[in-house]
Computed example of a mutant assay.
Amino acid sequence: MPPSPNTGRTSSRSWIAVAIGVVVLVAGFTGAWLLRPDAAPVAAPAPTPTVVTPSATPTPVATPAPAPVGFAANTASYDLGALPQVDVFAVIPSLPVDPDPASAPTGEVVTAAGAGAPVFSDPTGDPVAVLPAEYVYGGTTVPVVERQEHWVRVLLTGRQATPSTGNPGQLTGWLRAQDVTFAAVDARVEVSLSARTIDIVGPGGSERIATDFGSGVEGTPTPTGRSFIMTTRVEPSFGYTRGYPLVYLSVQSPTLDGFGGADVAITAFHYHDARSGAISNGCIRLDPAAIQRLSELPMGTPVLITP
């Protein structure tokens, strides 16, 4: 696992179709004779009975539109400057750890529409942090894992706690849909630690980019569950990468409070000469072709690591 950077500081609209009732009008037939005032009355012809065939299916009844699913809208204004920033260095105890780490995201990512978006641990309360629109170490484009009419739940960088003090797992939070800009993300990365495979899965199918790699040892395992690509960069000072990019993830070590003198322990994909089996501090070590391919993916791309 490489040292993390050490300075500085991310609701598919649920519409329920309304059934439109169809009103079937059945007209009866009646007959009548019109007589002039000076004309002698004549006998009316016998009426011809009209046969009405009942419909085979009942007439649909209009259904009222249901109430929108999810939490109510919140249009309040908040002082974002008074809130802690969500970034790779942040430790925010009030933000929840991902409750459903094995599920796939929705295929959307969001970024703050303004300078920042308030982050809520619970949409019925007040915000507890702010997601900046820009940050030097990334993490501002975040995947949506649940979308409602007025809210989205997203994955975030940072931690709820360090491993020595609590649960360091992947953070989540709620953002108001009015505060973010949506974009589609058409790929995700799937890593199987047991099968030693890595695939990029998209609309056109699955592309296998690795059939072996280096991963964490027992004391410093590679974290499992869903996360996302936080940032991608080349660090010339990391000689073991041979100049290839490091693809940093949003999730950090489950056992290390910090690494290499920094107070963060970020998981990353990166190149290494030794890259087979349990060998690392939690990072995933790859060959040049695989790391180059991963470096082409956009920020916010979901990553799912399974045991």
Rank of each mutant, 00 (worst) to 15 (best):
I266H: 04
I266K: 02
I266S: 12
I266D: 12
I266N: 07
T267C: 07
T267V: 14
T267H: 06
T267I: 13
T267G: 05
T267W: 03
A268C: 13
A268N: 12
A268G: 11
A268F: 06
A268W: 02
F269Y: 08
F269S: 00
F269H: 02
F269N: 00
F269A: 00
H270D: 03
H270G: 05
H270I: 05
H270A: 07
Y271S: 02
Y271H: 13
H272N: 14
H272I: 03
H272Q: 10
H272R: 14
H272W: 12
D273W: 14
D273C: 07
D273H: 14
D273Q: 15
A274Y: 12
A274P: 06
A274S: 14
A274T: 14
A274V: 15
A274E: 14
A274G: 13
R275D: 02
R275W: 08
R275T: 04
S276K: 10
S276A: 11
S276Q: 10
S276D: 08
S276W: 02
S276P: 07
G277W: 10
G277Q: 09
G277D: 11
G277I: 09
G277V: 06
A278T: 04
A278D: 05
A278G: 08
A278C: 03
A278W: 04
I279K: 06
I279A: 09
I279H: 04
I279D: 03
I279E: 05
I279C: 07
I279F: 09
I279S: 07
I279L: 15
I279W: 11
I279P: 03
S280T: 15
S280A: 08
S280P: 15
S280H: 08
N281L: 08
N281E: 15
N281I: 02
N281Y: 14
N281F: 08
N281A: 13
N281Q: 13
G282A: 10
G282W: 00
G282R: 01
G282I: 03
G282Q: 06
G282C: 11
C283N: 01
C283G: 02
C283S: 03
C283W: 00
C283M: 04
C283H: 00
I284D: 01
I284K: 00
I284W: 00
I284P: 01
I284C: 07
I284Y: 01
I284E: 01
R285N: 12
R285M: 10
R285V: 10
R285P: 12
L286H: 05
L286G: 01
D287L: 07
D287K: 09
P288C: 12
P288S: 14
A289R: 15
A289Q: 15
A290E: 02
A290T: 10
A290V: 08
A290H: 03
A290Q: 04
A290N: 08
A290Y: 01
I291Y: 01
I291A: 04
I291N: 01
I291V: 15
I291E: 02
Q292G: 15
Q292M: 07
Q292A: 11
Q292K: 11
Q292L: 10
Q292N: 12
Q292P: 13
R293I: 03
R293W: 05
R293F: 07
L294P: 05
L294E: 01
L294D: 01
L294G: 05
L294Y: 09
S295I: 12
S295K: 02
S295T: 09
S295F: 09
S295G: 15
S295L: 11
E296P: 07
E296G: 13
E296D: 12
E296I: 12
E296M: 13
L297A: 06
